[in-house]
Amino acid sequence: MAQFSLQVQPVDAAEWIDTARRAEAAGFHTLTAADHPGSCAAPFVALAAAAAVTTRIKLGSYVVNAGVREPMLLATDVATLDVVSGGRAVLGIGAGHTPVEWEAVGRVRPGVRARVDRCIAVMEATRRLLAGEKVTVDIPELTMHNAVLDKPRPVQDRMPLLVGTANSRLLRWASEHADIVGLTGFGPTKSDGHEHRVRWRLADIDDQVALAHAGGEPALEALVQQVEITDDVDAALAENARDLGMSVAELREVPFLLVGSADEIVAAVRRNRERWGITRYAVRRPALELLGPLLPRLSEV
């Protein structure tokens, strides 16, 4: 059964509450909020507000920047969300990539290896705190002493962990420890420090999926960059094909794009399950109207 997560940023109170209610009514599995301190809303505050007006939809971060978040505060935030939502929280974490977010907290963004080391340390420490353990860590990337999350205690015995990444080391770690691997398809960060090159060649995706299942069988979720219902797929994908140096035929096979007629999108979701085992999709705000009517069909794929 395919599941869809809707990533949205609050614009105002009325719009956010309405979106949460509509997403749940449409059948979206999870409502998620991004984490880019200084340029978007605080994810757990926004999700707690959504919890008050929904009853079934899961609520998660997609994804918190482990480079600028401390495990004690992160565990407290997600445990609080779990309590106020009645056990619907999902913890999504990534290594982070935008330099300005480090600069804003008085740090210099580390290189890739150090960011990955920090991300793994934060995930392990946060999970241990949520499990009620006393945590001490003393490594270059993270220092904690006798940290314990006494209150609040999460409702769920095991907080679902989503790791959003295309990094090989994180994919391997997530294959053994995560509940969900968010396949981003990202390549190196561009010079603006925010946008990415992509790794959308089918062989690249094969490699990412192999790493994500190297040590276990977490659910695989594709981060979708374009959702469009159209009878003219060639025209809809022409710009991406030109920019990426790929053919439209190749892009039709990429799980990070859901473009085509309703029947073609359903067929693509089925094909992605059969080839890669992808059963989840993270989509953005426009997909609420575009995919909402299709979710009953997609949920059966």
Rank of each mutant, 00 (worst) to 15 (best):
259 V>I: 07
268 A>G: 09
286 P>F: 01
274 E>N: 09
284 R>C: 02
244 L>P: 02
253 E>I: 12
237 L>W: 00
291 L>T: 10
247 S>F: 08
261 S>G: 14
259 V>P: 06
259 V>T: 08
289 E>N: 11
275 R>F: 05
283 V>A: 12
263 D>W: 03
273 R>I: 00
264 E>T: 15
285 R>M: 14
291 L>D: 13
271 R>A: 13
262 A>T: 10
252 R>A: 09
290 L>K: 06
282 A>W: 09
249 A>K: 05
255 P>I: 13
249 A>D: 15
244 L>T: 05
240 N>F: 00
285 R>K: 15
281 Y>N: 06
247 S>V: 10
262 A>H: 04
267 A>C: 03
282 A>D: 15
280 R>G: 04
240 N>H: 06
275 R>L: 12
272 N>Y: 07
287 A>Y: 13
251 L>Y: 10
255 P>Q: 12
274 E>H: 07
286 P>S: 04
276 W>K: 04
271 R>K: 12
257 L>H: 08
249 A>S: 10
284 R>D: 12
272 N>P: 00
239 E>I: 05
264 E>M: 05
287 A>G: 14
245 G>N: 03
277 G>M: 06
277 G>C: 04
291 L>E: 12
270 R>V: 05
254 V>A: 11
286 P>E: 03
238 A>W: 01
271 R>V: 05
291 L>Y: 07
258 L>C: 07
286 P>A: 03
266 V>D: 11
256 F>Q: 08
255 P>H: 09
285 R>G: 04
249 A>G: 07
239 E>Y: 00
253 E>K: 15
278 I>F: 02
284 R>V: 13
263 D>M: 02
280 R>L: 11
285 R>Y: 14
267 A>E: 13
246 M>N: 08
280 R>S: 08
266 V>G: 08
286 P>V: 02
243 D>V: 11
263 D>K: 08
286 P>K: 04
251 L>M: 13
286 P>I: 04
246 M>V: 05
272 N>V: 01
281 Y>F: 15
257 L>E: 07
239 E>H: 01
262 A>R: 03
254 V>R: 05
264 E>R: 11
280 R>I: 09
283 V>D: 15
237 L>Y: 00
237 L>N: 06
279 T>M: 03
269 V>N: 13
254 V>P: 04
238 A>Q: 11
277 G>R: 03
281 Y>H: 10
263 D>H: 09
254 V>G: 06
277 G>F: 06
241 A>Y: 01
264 E>C: 05
251 L>T: 15
260 G>L: 01
282 A>C: 11
283 V>S: 12
259 V>S: 10
277 G>T: 09
243 D>Q: 13
275 R>I: 15
283 V>K: 06
